[in-house]
Each structure stands twice: as C-alpha cells, then as structure tokens.
Design a protein around this nucleic acid. Structure first.
Length: 292
DNA sequence: AGCGAGCCCTGCAGGC
DNA sequence: TGCCTGCAGGGCTCGC
C-alpha cells in the first residue's frame, strides 16, 4: 500500500478521529514490529491529547501534547482502521479475528470511545517515539530529500543530485535521500510519463554545466504531477488497500505501467507493450518503445 | 563512496 | 484438495 500518496490518504482519513482526542490507552499485542516498539511506549503516551496528525515522506506523525511524537511507518503491508464503538462494526476488515492487529490506540473524545487499530501482516512497519522538538534528529529524517509536493522539489536541485551519476534513474528515484516518499509504483509511473527509460543513467539528463536538460525538466514535472494526481485520487487503489474508514479498498484505476506487463502502452501513438525487468532486486515496469 | 544483493515476514496467486 | 514456487507497496545492513 503505502507510498507518499497512500500515507497522506491515511493521515487525512485518521485526522478527524484522532485530532483533539485523548489517547486514553495504548494496547500492544506484541513487543515488536520490524523493530522493538519504544521502551515504555504505552506509559509514555497514555493520557495525552493528540494535537495533530502530520506526515513526512512515508512516515505518519502523531503529535501528542507536551512535545511527544509517535513516528509510524506502514512498511509494505501496514494499515489502520477505525472502530467507533458508538457506531458499531460498520467495517469489514480482511483480518477477521484481529490477526495482525498489533497496536491499538484507545481514544476518548467527548463521551465516545474510538479505537484506531494498526494491522500489519508482514510487520515491515515500525513505530518510534521522538520529542517533537527533536524530530529533525530522527535518523531517517536527517538526510531525507525534499517532498515531491508543493514547491519543495525543483529541477535544479535534481540536477545537482543526478550530476555524474551512473546509477539508473529507477534506483536513483527510489532513494529517499534524493526525493522523499516515492516508491516502486510512482517511480515507474513518473518515468513513463517522462518517456525516460528506467535504465538511463541519472547523469545523462544533466547538462555539462550541471543544469537540468529538457528531459529532467519533464521528469521533475512528471514526478510532481503523478504524486499530486494520486493524492487527489485518494491514494492508489491496490487490491488490499483498506480505507481508514474501514471500507475495503477498491480497484478503480489501474496504473499506466505498474503491474501492466504485456498490456499495450497507453502513450498516444506508441503501440508498444509494457515490459517488466528487475532492477536492484525489484520489478520495474516500462514501455521499451517510448521510454528512451 | 556508491552501488546492488540479501534479508526481515506473511499472504496470495499460479502451476502441477 | 494440497504443495510448491515466486512475488508483493520498504528500507536497513552488509558486502564488493
């Protein structure tokens, strides 16, 4: 599920339930996810009011009163769902018996009790605690690249990062230190929109003077657009994406190239066929006819 | 230093 | 029906 647009969708889905609520109790059903959960996690957060929900790259940030933030990463298979006891069981979770419900936030708002449940079959997700005032010191944030939203990302910056690089565009764009929040799907989609081969060396779209060439200008626009479009669409709709309101994910749009191996390329007039290759151990989907 | 490979873990789809 | 293999949105760590 979770690249930047999906995490942003989760944040927006959880915010109405969580912001302003009191975190009455944290229920931990195991001591670890990918990493051990924070020392005294439940004790540290219990009783605090939730000030706001934020996001950095693919990390969800739960800001609590008195300068404490829960940093949550959903890994590959993490999801949240909301159970509002006053509304009953309106959702149909895939995990019927609560299997893989690892962390449960018990919230109180006015007289209502609400549970926000973190489920993660593969346990590639993790949670850490940080003082809000020291978030920049969190190791993963220290070297994180700019967000591909708003105006934080620009082509001149990318040119400085790409210059002289022999590394393929695909793995360069997956590097969170270059751009924060892109994952396998949106890298494939952005390269397709840019008509750039995922195998092109990053350094080949920078001029001799270290400026972005036309291809890099287009790539920069494509990255920003593909992310903006995905956020607008409410995150992508993969098979097992569970909306935070508890409803099952749905399949409404498919991607242009991701998971489209063997299908006709959608570029107007191209006539090519989407191919799949492996780069750095992960699948890349692209059209060899129009991505050069 | 800058890469890619291996690995963490469970579930699911497809082939036989 | 079942067993096997391969693959999955990420990212840390370790080699070359």
């Amino acid at each position: 599920m979770p690249e930047l647009p999906e995490v942003e969708t989760v944040r927006r889905g959880l915010a109405p339930a969580m912001e302003g609520a009191r975190l009455a109790r944290l229920e931990l059903n195991r001591p670890d996810l990918r990493f051990p959960l924070p020392e005294n996690f439940a004790e540290a957060v219990a009783g605090r009011r939730i000030v706001s929900l934020g996001r950095r790259a693919k990390y969800l940030l739960i800001d609590l009163e008195n300068d404490l933030t829960v940093i949550a990463h959903l890994g590959m298979s993490g999801s949240f769902r909301i159970e509002d006891e006053t509304l009953g069981e309106f959702h149909h979770s895939r995990s019927k018996d609560g299997k893989h419900d690892h962390v449960i936030f018990h919230l109180e708002r006015e007289e209502r009790l609400v549970k926000v449940i973190y489920n993660d079959p593969r346990r590639f997700g993790f949670m850490h605690l940080s003082k809000r005032s020291e978030l920049d010191l969190y190791p993963a944030f220290a070297e994180l690249g700019p967000e591909p939203t708003g105006n934080a990302l620009d082509a001149d910056y990318l040119a400085t990062r790409f210059a002289g690089k022999a590394q393929p565009l695909k793995s360069t764009l997956l590097d969170q230190k270059v751009i924060a929040g892109l994952g396998n799907i949106y890298v494939c989609e952005a390269l397709w929109r840019s008509h750039l081969s995922p195998e092109r060396a990053a350094g080949t779209i920078v001029t001799k003077t270290g400026k972005p060439n036309k291809e890099l200008l287009l790539l920069n626009e494509s990255i920003r657009e593909v992310i903006a479009d995905a956020i607008a669409a409410g995150g992508s709709s993969l098979r097992d994406h569970i909306q935070t309101d508890g409803s099952l994910g749905y399949f409404q749009h498919s991607f242009s190239v991701y998971d489209q191996e063997g299908k006709p390329c959608r570029t107007a007039g191209c006539g090519g066929t989407v191919a799949r290759i492996t780069q750095a151990g992960r699948s890349t989907f692209y059209c060899p006819s129009c991505q050069k």
